[in-house]
């Protein structure tokens, strides 16, 4: 499945803009939301091929969003890939829980936009 549409849930303005800029330049359609609640609503209302999910978000944390989408009996986004992008060093249990429901878990400081593009390429 080729990835075309991407939802980026990221509250840091600079980081968000940086990802959106590179992703759009690479030809993806990108929606960018800064709040946890808005992010969850967008993820449920529209189909995306990929969600880039931050953890430390206002209103609703990334792990809660992932839990709402994939933690229940039914996977609400079966045709969507999820990459968790965070700079927060979570404790092992929380990290494991998120990795279990996600297709990737990356530390933002270690991932430049170019590397992110190659990771997304690898997912397609």
């Amino acid at each position: 499945m080729a990835i075309k549409t991407i939802l980026c849930i990221e509250d840091d303005r600079f980081i968000g803009e940086m990802y959106v800029r590179s992703l759009k330049k690479a030809g993806y359609e990108v929606d960018w939301l800064v709040g946890g609640n808005d992010g969850l609503i967008a993820a449920r209302n529209k189909h995306y091929d990929l969600i880039l999910l931050d953890v430390m978000l206002p209103e609703r944390r990334g792990n809660e969003i992932l839990d709402s989408l994939r933690g229940g009996k039914e996977d609400l986004i079966p045709d969507t890939k999820v990459i968790v992008l965070t700079n927060f060093e979570q404790d092992d249990e929380s990290r494991m829980a998120m990795e279990h429901h996600a297709d990737g878990y990356l530390i933002k400081a270690e991932i430049t936009p170019r590397k992110l593009l190659s990771v997304i390429d690898g997912l397609s």
């Binding site: 840091d12 600079f14 980081i15 940086m18 700079n87 933002k108 400081a109 991932i111 430049t112 936009p113 170019r114 590397k115």
Partner: peptide, 8 residues
């Protein structure tokens, strides 16, 4: 993240 990202 931003520094490394934009430098790249």
């Amino acid at each position: 993240t931003v520094i490394r990202g934009y430098l790249d």
